[in-house]
Design a protein around this nucleic acid. Structure first.
Lengths: 242, 242
DNA sequence: GAGTGGTCTAGACCACCCT
DNA sequence: GGGTGGTCTAGACCACTCG
């Protein structure tokens, strides 16, 4: 239903233009490797002034959909979700040594029935479940259970091992054309089950930081639900207020 | 030293104007109850076009320093730090009943020597220490130890009880002209000491969410350091990513 | 040097608020 | 009705990138 929003002619021109550009980006008309048409061209095409184009583009840059480069043009921003869950855990060694790169070990991929919370968020019970263990220099840090709708990710469970890198979102984009534009994380504390404790190499009953994430595509449709756990004693999070 | 930044004539006009306006706000030339001069007036006064004024003001609105109201004018934003630490704890009753207002009980105010971390952040050991217990409908939620520089808050420890409301930042502003513009919170996990447990009515050794905050004034000088603790089982935090 | 985004102008009209 | 911010125009020149 969010898809069908008609463009109301009473809306300001820059809003209508912004929505139009968003739709084009969603359709994949422009890709990150080539600049979108220049502001002057867009102004001519949509019969508005350059100032209005700038205001529309400004909005999309702020949303993170576009990227300006002076002199070279404006591009669709390449998806750049860099292991964002690790922002809840220090990514450096204890001695402050150079950051190591998170690695990722997939323990399971299978078509299954979604648990209640995932089903409610995704709007379907037919999902693919992915279980991952993510580590920093061989030390397990995060245990994740991930659910994605089977319909939109058909075939994910049979992708060759070699295609699976340490990050999922680039995979979603390259193989299924789905771009994660936005996500919400909910953090709470809990206690490790036997199974989680074993994977994280801690003791059952040890405190956990539990992060539940819902990720959305460019059209604000939920496309992933996951629950991730890490040792609470390693948890650390910085938040800015204005 | 941050104060002395000269306005470089090579900077864009809107940046110079933005910095000039910031300085005026910091000096208290404008207050929240009256609009600042209109965009047309500012354009005339600084001999730039209205578009340039708009861009400067846009920046300050984004920073949260100003507030536009169509038809009525642009104002300095009244400090509105509404019990921000409670964003880490659900402010509603368990049954989802209407939110209750956090109350605040001050246990101690005294001039003292700052602990290392506070001293390092504030750049002085001469501080006033405030100890508070904050509750939701008589249920203690947060135990706080707060340190503010004695020099800038001279006399805080002797303010009459009646002057102390549930929020500190309005107090800083009204009595000392210090406006909190920005703060950083660092959340981690720990266990309750005997003292904290007693205040929060939990058991010693129970899991805690520990929040360390540094607050800055309009000139980015640190003016407060605090450490706050609440029961980890009550902790809940939502975070958005783009 | 050609083309791009970044800054800036000097207006105009509209939507909204207040008295 | 008078004043405010919100939108929009049709240009101009500058700073930067890239072939």
């Amino acid at each position: 239903m969010d898809r069908l929003k008609a463009i109301d002619a009473r809306l300001p021109a820059y809003v209508r233009l912004r929505d139009t550009l968003t739709a084009r980006i969603a359709e994949g008309e422009w890709t990150p490797d080539q600049p979108i048409p220049s502001e002057a061209r867009l102004a001519k095409e949509f019969d508005v002034s350059i100032g209005t184009v700038r205001k529309a583009v400004d909005g999309l840059v702020e949303e993170g959909l576009l990227e300006r480069r002076q002199g070279s043009g404006t591009r669709v921003r390449a998806p750049s979700f860099n292991a964002t869950l690790f922002r809840f855990f220090p990514i450096r060694e204890k001695d402050g040594a150079p950051l190591s790169i998170p690695s990722s070990h997939i323990l399971l991929r299978s078509i299954t029935e979604a648990p209640d919370e995932a089903a409610r968020v995704l709007g379907t019970r037919e999902v693919i479940k992915i279980v991952r263990l993510r580590s920093l220099s061989d030390q397990p840090v995060l245990f994740e259970e991930i659910y994605i709708p089977a319909r939109r990710f058909a075939g994910f469970e049979t992708l060759p091992e070699a295609a699976l890198g340490p990050l999922l979102y680039p995979l979603y984009f390259e193989h299924f054309g789905i771009m994660v534009k936005h996500a919400t994380d909910e953090v709470s504390f809990g206690w490790a089950s036997e199974r989680v404790a074993q994977q994280l190499r801690i003791k059952p009953g040890d405190p956990l930081a539990v992060i539940k994430r819902t990720a959305f595509d460019i059209e604000n449709t939920p496309i992933e639900w996951r629950i991730a756990s890490g040792s609470a004693t390693e948890f650390r999070y910085r938040s800015e207020i204005n």
